[in-house]
């Protein structure tokens, strides 16, 4: 119990330090640049307290729940030795965590608005909704595929840079053909798909796999899943923009 409290305290100090820069920046601009007083001091204090406590609990839960689960799954799959099930799991994890991601829902709605403005689809509400829905499924599919490719890479030990460079070439080629309106949003969609819960899980899965397979180095082979997951959506969203 005592060690838990100590751990919590240490995490709390860490969180305070992590949040100090953002507070300083906001206060500096408010007071020095915009020359405005700081309003709602009470609300601000409570809010910052929530953020610090939240970050602390998250870090504690990370080391106690998300990391062990991800690694444990990786060991068990490696022991079971069924590549097919591992790939099914990888796809489900990528697809399932992305399809409900709030940031993606927001981006898909905005993309539909852009498409309607650009005259790519009809301006009606229904056309926009079905466009956004299709886009979400496309991105989720592409993230699932990315995790599958990433897991295959760990199993086979392929060097990462060839795949990434291939992905870059794919992005550049798609950019030449995709409608101009969609390009900005397609590039952004790569960054928003990986949420705060997915990242630790997927990282732990990759590192766990690489350390339980003989001849793989967790540093060289374990990382890289997130990189794939932020590259494939760019290609798929541009492809979607071209097809529809």
């Amino acid at each position: 119990m005592k060690s838990f409290v100590l751990r919590l305290l240490a995490a709390m100090i860490g969180s305070l330090r992590d949040l100090a820069p953002i507070l300083l920046v906001v206060l500096f601009f408010q007071v020095a640049v915009l020359g405005q007083p700081i309003e709602h001091v009470g609300r601000l204090t409570v809010g910052v307290g929530c953020v610090v406590a939240g970050l602390t609990f998250f870090i504690v839960g990370l080391e106690q729940g998300l990391f062990p689960v991800g690694e444990n799954m990786a060991y068990e799959f490696a022991r079971k030795g069924s590549v097919l099930w591992l790939l099914v799991f990888a796809f489900a994890l990528g697809f399932g965590t992305t399809v409900a991601e709030p940031a993606l829902i927001a981006v898909a709605a905005e993309a539909a608005a852009v498409a309607a403005e650009g005259g790519l689809i009809e301006a009606g509400e229904q056309a926009r909704n079905s466009y956004a829905q299709g886009l979400r499924l496309t991105v989720a599919l592409s993230v699932g595929l990315a995790i599958v490719i990433g897991v295959l890479r760990i199993l086979k030990g392929w060097p990462i840079h060839w795949i990434i460079i291939g992905g870059y070439v794919g992005v550049v080629v798609m950019t030449c053909f995709a409608p101009d309106e969609i390009i900005g949003i397609a590039y952004d969609s790569g960054g928003v798909t990986t949420s705060t819960i997915t990242v630790p899980l997927v990282t732990a899965l990759g590192v766990g796999l690489a350390s339980s397979i003989r001849g793989r180095n967790p540093m060289v082979d374990g990382f890289g899943l997130i990189a794939f997951a932020s590259l494939t959506p760019m290609i798929f969203v541009m492809g979607y923009g071209m097809l529809i």
Binding site: R43, F57, G61, L66
Partner: peptide, 19 residues
């Protein structure tokens, strides 16, 4: 651990949204 993650992330987001 999962419960900590949910509680932590919720507080974190609420605080950000608020302040």
């Amino acid at each position: 651990g999962f419960a900590w993650v949910v509680v932590g992330l919720t507080l974190f987001l609420v605080g950000l949204e608020w302040a």
